[in-house]
């Protein structure tokens, strides 16, 4: 079993936005790993590990489209426990989701993977597209927004609890497949791999990189490809027309009684 996990670097979402003309200025941004990708790697690791045993049930490969010298997020996930990495050396900020999905699909094919796990979205553009597009390109079954996941190794299938608008939909898909994960996949009992005891309680959230993991990360193998070598020509079906900040909210007023409020809603806001 080979699990490919997509991981992305994003400008630190805790920093305040800066603009340069018609675009977001990331020149001084601190780049961090996308949080949903942490959940994706955690999911893959929970599937791969047989707690209480030394054997691994899967190889976990993290894959990122990024400039090859801006790979701190990849190293971070190797430190967390992924077995090796694949980098597609390119400026991903200039690419649309379709191009990224094509690159990911090609890596998936060449590696002969059985499962693609992605975060449901990246916190910068919140596109929520790569997993679904990759599934289409690979012609594989998919389950997006996974909140729970059970791996039935006998049947070579995954049963996924998907968080949808009106509740949780449970669906079983055969492998190979594509899964995108949501926040609750990292709750202590969300992932079961059929080998680790079903009642095993994982710690809440994505695990911290252990110090040994951190010191070993640099020694793990990372292959670097170019889009050209993968036979993918960047397309741009989507172009950015412009970026503007939302308008600042005008200062509110504090009123002294419900009566004044109603009067103001009638006379000033004219909404009643």
């Amino acid at each position: 079993m080979k699990i490919l996990v997509t991981v992305k670097r994003i400008p630190d979402p805790d920093e305040s936005l800066k603009f340069a003309g018609n675009a977001i200025d990331t020149s001084s941004s601190k780049w961090v790993a996308n949080a949903f990708d942490e959940y994706a790697v955690e999911t893959a690791l929970r599937m791969a590990e047989h707690i209480g045993n030394k054997d691994r049930l899967a190889e976990v490969i993290v894959c990122s489209v990024c400039p090859k010298d801006k790979r701190q997020h990849v190293t971070q996930f190797l430190a967390m426990g992924a077995d090796r990495g694949v980098i597609v050396d390119a400026d991903e900020t200039a690419m649309d989701s379709q191009t990224v999905a094509k690159l990911v699909a090609e890596v998936f094919r060449r590696e002969g993977c059985d499962l693609l796990v992605s975060g449901k979205l990246s916190q910068d553009s919140e596109g929520n597209e790569v997993a679904q597009r990759a599934a289409g390109l690979l012609d594989l079954p998919q389950a997006s927004f996974a909140a729970t996941l059970r791996w039935d190794r006998g049947a070579n299938a995954l049963t996924v609890g998907r968080e949808v608008d009106d509740g949780v939909e449970t669906k079983t898909i055969p492998l190979p497949a594509v899964v995108s994960v949501d926040l609750r996949i990292v709750l202590p009992h969300s992932v079961k791999n059929g080998a680790t005891a079903d009642d095993h309680k994982y710690s809440d959230g994505a695990r911290l990189a252990s110090l040994r993991g951190i010191t070993m990360a640099k020694r793990k193998k990372v292959d670097v490809h170019t889009p050209a070598a993968l036979g993918v020509t960047p397309s741009s079906h989507v172009a950015v027309a412009g970026v503007t900040a939302p308008e600042k909210r005008a200062a509110g007023q504090i009123v002294d009684s419900a009566q004044t409020l109603v009067n103001k809603l009638i006379t000033e806001a004219k909404v009643l």
């Binding site: 190293t75 430190a79 911290l208 990189a209 110090l211 951190i214 640099k218």
Partner: peptide, 17 residues
């Protein structure tokens, strides 16, 4: 170094959590 930052990161999160 980046690796030293990563060590600090784990220790900081451990302290917080």
């Amino acid at each position: 170094t980046e690796e030293q930052q990563a060590l600090v990161d784990t220790a900081r999160k451990f302290a917080a959590e």
